[in-house]
Design a protein around this nucleic acid. Structure first.
Lengths: 197, 197
DNA sequence: GTCTATACGGTGATAGAC
DNA sequence: GTCTATCACCGTATAGAC
């Protein structure tokens, strides 16, 4: 709190608090007050750094997008086999979730349902979709697979399905959730096997 | 339900308006005022029928859950082959979306990200998850498939992935979306084929 | 850059008449 | 049952001092 305020700038503390609260409780349901209280920052300071709540939301999504891309980059660098590189999206999101300590679903899909059209944060939802489809497409091409568009679409479908499983689990007590990401990876791998073989 | 009353009851008009606005614009982002204006109903009338906004939200989710289950029932009754019955969840959701004229993602997954814990509407999110996993499980048993829990989880993963595709498309202009439900159905069918053969 | 205090608007909810 | 009118609150944003 006071110690962290001496070490970390208000802007960073705001982004951290926003990331936690927006992700856990939802964007629309989280008031600016709650973010300010958690960050230990006054309203005026926030408005000196961000263009209102919308700007704070956009900055939160941008930071999350950047971190996610870097995590995927790191995992990608560990693999040389073309199919492993294609499937790395699942390993990367598993690592990302472990790093962030997240337990709910995809922050970008969640934001897609909450943000009104024209919101500055929309840009990062589109960036997430394009990063996923673009990379998966390119990796499919590199693997020499036919119809790389279909490969990207199918793997994205598995990816979204896995993350949606966590969203369901968070709101359905008792629902058995056994490693959706691992399940999605195996499903995608089996499907790829029928195309490479 | 019937046409006996001269004018459509206020309660029904409210549920219709709520269904359209909550689904299209999000629950938290939609004010009660907007629902009242679209339904042509006064505030007091709404509070005579529902226990506040939370009650209206819960009633909206309940109605959607009921309609969805009935649609699935109807599609299920058209098939006798065990695998077709298992895959009917995709045909049913395609028909449901056509009937409702929806273009966005899953209303229950969306609500899962928006509703705070303890909200009366949470019950219907859980009901949706349990309906899906329970039926898929039973249909897998009826089909004589091994590990019916895994079958249900994998098919639910495909189902959620397909609907998430529409959520992405709604917020990412230019993203190619070619029949996610059909893609999910084929993916699930291929995966089932490796288990039945 | 940061804080305290405050103004403003919108939203959920109620009272009372018809 | 339904409406008109109104209230009370909370969340967003700003003004001015340090």
């Amino acid at each position: 709190m006071t110690a962290s305020s001496a070490t970390r700038p208000a802007r960073e503390r705001l982004l951290t608090a926003a990331g936690e609260l927006f992700y856990e409780s939802g964007i629309a349901a989280t008031g600016v007050d709650a973010v300010l209280a958690r960050a230990g920052v006054s309203p005026a300071t926030m408005y000196a750094h961000f263009a209102g709540k919308d700007g704070l939301v956009a900055a939160y999504l941008e930071e999350r997008h950047t971190t996610w891309r870097q995590t995927w980059d790191a995992v990608l660098a560990e693999h040389r086999d073309p199919v492993d590189r294609l499937l790395s999206v699942f390993d990367a999101v598993a690592r990302f979730r472990q790093q962030q300590g997240t337990r709910r679903g995809c922050a970008f899909l969640a934001a897609a349902t909450e943000l009104p059209s024209g919101h500055p944060g929309q840009r990062w939802l589109a960036a997430d979709s394009r990063l996923l489809t673009g990379r998966l497409h390119d990796l499919a091409v590199a693997a020499g697979l036919p119809d790389p568009e279909a490969v990207a679409s199918t793997l994205l479908l598995c990816y979204d399905g896995a993350l949606s499983g966590y969203a369901r689990a968070a709101t359905t007590p008792g629902l058995p959730v056994d490693d959706p990401i691992g399940r999605a990876r195996r499903l995608a791998a089996d499907w790829l096997a029928t195309r490479t073989g």
